[in-house]
């Protein structure tokens, strides 16, 4: 079953920490997280400057209720962690992960810094991103190297393409094997897979809201819960795409109602043609033409899926309220 992540990560912006106008304006966009980048968007001559900005940026990012996350450099791990692990940081993203020992080393450093800086042990999660063939080959070793690895994915994108020497934005899925290996490793280790259905992107656009919505919607229907992007225009469409609709919620309640009936009969499953179900009732199943189809099986699996959907709805609602209140508080204090 899709486990519900402890922290919601439906939408997030990755932005160069050395560009104050991005960081200072990101807090009110409604992101679940803001990923302060020390890596690719920061030129080599500004890495020191960038490191010095993380600590003071955390409260800026936090003030609208977004989680503060930091992407470090693969080759500057120790210095970057030292700059990033401060109270308020919830996750460190590690690019181009290739070996389990890298993650073990990260875990040691984070554990020490948490202790020294008064952060509750185990607070800071690791997002390990696979971007090379070596990383794919060692996927299971990497994801199991630390219990902090709660976000594990990749095996596609710019660096992966460069490592394999392939063009980006072709019309077919080039990375079936690598993505499969990484997702299987995440699932085998009992971690939330950071994955999504393949949708061709031959334009390479990072700011198209329609595309962002379609991707998030497809990901949600497929059971995935993690998003993120580079452009403010995709934040709201992602939040919308990851939200369950009223029809889906009613459908989930209907499934649970039918499952309770079924459980009393001693049989383990039943098939229902939803076109014969009273569509005026409440709760009611989605229509026969919905993405769930006409002939619906009710069994333990569908019931657990329905339960998860309702929990997800509640989590999203709580998280959205939390962020809205935080933004309102800031606005109110600014008005004074």
């Amino acid at each position: 079953m899709a486990s519900t992540p402890r922290r919601l990560k439906r939408s997030g912006l990755t932005m160069p920490i050395v560009t104050p106008r991005f960081i200072n304006n990101a807090w009110h966009r409604g992101c679940d997280f803001i990923n302060m980048d020390l890596e690719d968007s920061v030129p080599p001559n500004l890495k020191d400057v960038a490191r010095n900005l993380v600590r003071e940026s955390i409260p800026v990012v936090n003030k609208g209720g977004s989680d503060a996350v930091c992407r470090i450099n693969h080759d500057l791990m120790e210095a970057d962690l030292n700059a990033a692990i401060w109270p308020g940081i919830t996750q460190v993203n590690y690019p181009k992960a290739e070996y389990g020992h890298e993650i073990e080393r990260m875990d040691e450093i984070i554990t020490r810094l948490e202790a020294e800086r008064g952060i509750r042990p185990g607070t800071v999660e690791i997002g390990a991103n696979i971007e090379t063939a070596v990383g794919v080959a060692n996927a299971y070793e990497i994801v199991t190297a630390s219990a902090r690895v709660m976000d594990f994915g990749g095996a596609a994108g710019y660096d992966m393409s460069r490592d394999l020497g392939v063009e980006m934005f072709v019309s077919f899925d080039q990375f079936v094997y690598g993505k499969g290996e990484v997702e299987l490793a995440a699932r085998a280790a009992g971690r939330e897979p950071h994955a999504a259905p393949f949708t061709p992107n031959i334009t390479g656009s990072v700011s198209d809201p329609d595309r962002a919505f379609a991707e998030a919607d497809a990901a949600r229907k497929c059971g995935f819960r993690i998003g993120g992007g580079l452009h403010p225009a995709v934040v709201e469409p992602q939040i919308r795409g990851f939200a369950s609709s009223d029809d889906e919620i009613s459908d989930a309640q209907w499934v649970l109602q039918e499952y309770r009936k079924l459980a009393r009969t001693g049989t383990t499953w039943v098939q229902i043609d939803v076109s014969t179900v009273d569509r005026e009732g409440s709760p009611r199943p989605m229509g026969a033409d919905s993405y769930l189809g006409r002939h619906r099986v009710i069994d333990r699996y569908e019931a657990s899926r329905a339960e998860e959907l309702l929990q997800w709805r509640d989590l999203c609602r709580e998280r959205d309220e939390e962020k809205a209140e935080a933004v309102a508080r800031v606005r109110a204090s600014e008005a004074e």
């Binding site: 063939a133 794919v136 394999l164 079936v176 094997y177 690598g178 499969g180």
Partner: peptide, 14 residues
């Protein structure tokens, strides 16, 4: 042979 080709490309490149 999607799997086989993919495995070969990844393992060889690695």
């Amino acid at each position: 042979l999607v799997y086989a080709r993919g495995r070969l490309c990844i393992e060889a490149t690695a």
